[in-house]
């Protein structure tokens, strides 16, 4: 069921404590700052957040972490020059980290959206990130079993939605948006523009509206 909502507050109102929330973006590109701010204001806590990074600077996901709303981060690259809020929480033992190679992160998200029960990949084989995981030799290469990564909610940013919830993105801000939209039970999208049904060329739609639940226009 697709809803167009008027405010980011309405869009995130149903997010419960303890939820697993996927947040789109690679660094700041594609990060849905307004939805994250609304999530902060709604007070939901004890969250597991899936994002490539663990916040940068003093905005968005970094603030959600600073305020102690995130119990666990699942990400590939938490440590950056400006990831001080995550760094402090991690060193204080106040946040759990599941570190996932970036391609495994993307493919685990994709697998969840596609109904795949898991997959074997050479990425990580023979490294500490494969410790304790099932391995096989396939076509002569060591491979590691990885499981799908589901979420209760996805918060993503797109450029334009049409009346059916079809989405297009902008440049490298696309990144995790399309696969997170498919992997979450409830996908909330902030867009810069909403056009009438038929306003997007069907040949150019990147995320079909079937994956989208709530859309909010952000100025």
């Amino acid at each position: 069921m697709l809803n167009f909502v008027d405010t980011v507050q309405d869009a995130v109102a149903g997010i419960k404590d303890g939820s697993t929330v996927m947040i789109g973006g690679f660094g700041n590109a594609g990060q849905p700052f307004e939805l994250i701010d609304a999530l902060m204001d709604c007070g939901a806590t004890d969250l597991t957040v899936v994002n490539n990074n663990a916040g940068q600077g003093d905005q968005g996901l970094a603030l959600l972490i600073r305020k102690g709303r995130v119990r666990k981060m699942i990400c590939s690259f938490p440590r950056q020059s400006d990831s001080w809020h995550f760094d402090a929480k991690y060193k204080a033992g106040e946040i759990e980290l599941e570190l996932v190679p970036q391609g495994n992160l993307a493919e685990r998200i994709r697998a969840a959206g596609a109904g795949i029960g898991g997959f074997f990949t050479p990425t990580g084989y023979g490294t500490m990130l494969a410790e304790g995981k099932e391995t096989r030799i396939i076509d002569g290469r060591g491979q590691v079993f990885e499981t799908p990564l589901h979420a209760d909610v996805a918060l993503i940013k797109a450029l334009t939605a049409d009346g059916r919830g079809n989405l297009v993105y902008r440049k490298t801000a696309r990144n995790f948006g399309p696969i997170m939209a498919a992997a979450a039970k409830h996908t909330i999208v902030q867009v810069s523009d909403i056009v009438p049904t038929g306003g997007l060329d069907p040949e150019n739609v990147v995320t079909p509206g079937i994956y989208v639940n709530s859309i909010v226009k952000v100025a």
């Binding site: 590939s76 190679p101 970036q102 391609g103 990425t123 490294t127 500490m128």
Partner: peptide, 21 residues
């Protein structure tokens, strides 16, 4: 990707995928 030093925050990014792919 990681020095393995005690207290170092590990960050892998796409390094393992590039190395194997």
């Amino acid at each position: 990707w990681h020095t393995g030093a005690p207290g170092a925050i590990p960050a892998v990014g796409g390094a393992m995928d590039l190395a194997t792919g």
